[in-house]
Deep mutational scan, measured.
Amino acid sequence: GATAVSEWTEYKTADGKTYYYNNRTEESTWEKPQELK
């Protein structure tokens, strides 16, 4: 299949934890999204 550009962006909180934000759905998660595995 075609490689889609991930909708997920990786961010870090002030205390250094990583989370992921989906630009399309406006969803955020602590877990690494399936698309990034």
Rank of each mutant, 00 (worst) to 15 (best):
K17D: 06
K17M: 07
K17C: 15
N22M: 01
G16E: 02
Y19K: 04
Y20T: 00
Y11K: 14
S28H: 14
E35T: 06
W8H: 00
Y21N: 02
T29S: 11
N23A: 14
G16S: 01
A4M: 14
T3R: 07
L36G: 06
K37P: 10
L36Y: 13
K37Y: 15
K37H: 14
Q34A: 15
R24S: 09
S28I: 15
E27G: 03
K12T: 12
Y20P: 01
Y21H: 06
G1H: 13
T9A: 10
T25V: 01
T9R: 11
A2C: 15
T3G: 13
E35Q: 09
L36S: 05
V5T: 12
P33T: 02
A14I: 11
S6A: 11
N22D: 01
E10V: 11
K12A: 05
S6K: 08
E10L: 05
A14Q: 10
W30R: 05
E27R: 04
W30H: 07
E27P: 00
Q34G: 10
E31W: 06
A2F: 13
P33V: 02
T3Y: 05
N22Y: 02
S6I: 09
S6F: 08
T3M: 13
D15W: 08
Y21T: 04
T9Q: 12
E27L: 06
Y21V: 10
A2G: 13
W8E: 00
V5F: 13
L36F: 12
W30N: 07
V5A: 14
T29F: 06
T18I: 14
K12D: 02
T13D: 12
L36I: 09
P33W: 02
A4E: 13
T13S: 08
T18N: 04
T13Y: 03
V5I: 12
S6W: 09
R24A: 09
P33Q: 03
A4D: 13
K12N: 05
N22T: 00
K32V: 09
E7P: 07
E7K: 04
G1L: 14
S6G: 11
Y21K: 09
A14G: 06
D15V: 02
E10Y: 04
K32H: 05
V5L: 14
W8V: 01
T25M: 03
P33S: 01
W30G: 04
A2Q: 14
A14F: 04
A14R: 07
K12M: 11
K37T: 14
V5K: 10
E7Q: 07
S28A: 11
E7N: 07
Y21Q: 03
Y20D: 00
K37R: 13
A14W: 08
Y11S: 04
E7T: 06
W30I: 07
K17W: 05
T3A: 13
K37V: 15
N23M: 12
W30E: 07
G1Y: 11
E27I: 07
E35G: 10
W30Y: 11
K32F: 06
Y11G: 04
W8S: 00
E27N: 04
T9F: 10
S28Q: 11
A4P: 14
S6P: 12
Y19P: 01
K17E: 08
E35A: 11
A2Y: 11
W8G: 00
L36T: 05
N23Q: 12
G16R: 00
K17Q: 11
G1S: 13
A14Y: 03
W8I: 02
A4Y: 06
T25N: 03
G16F: 01
K17V: 10
N22S: 03
G16D: 04
G1A: 15
E35Y: 06
K12Q: 10
G1P: 13
G16N: 04
E35C: 15
K17S: 05
Y20V: 00
Y20S: 00
R24F: 14
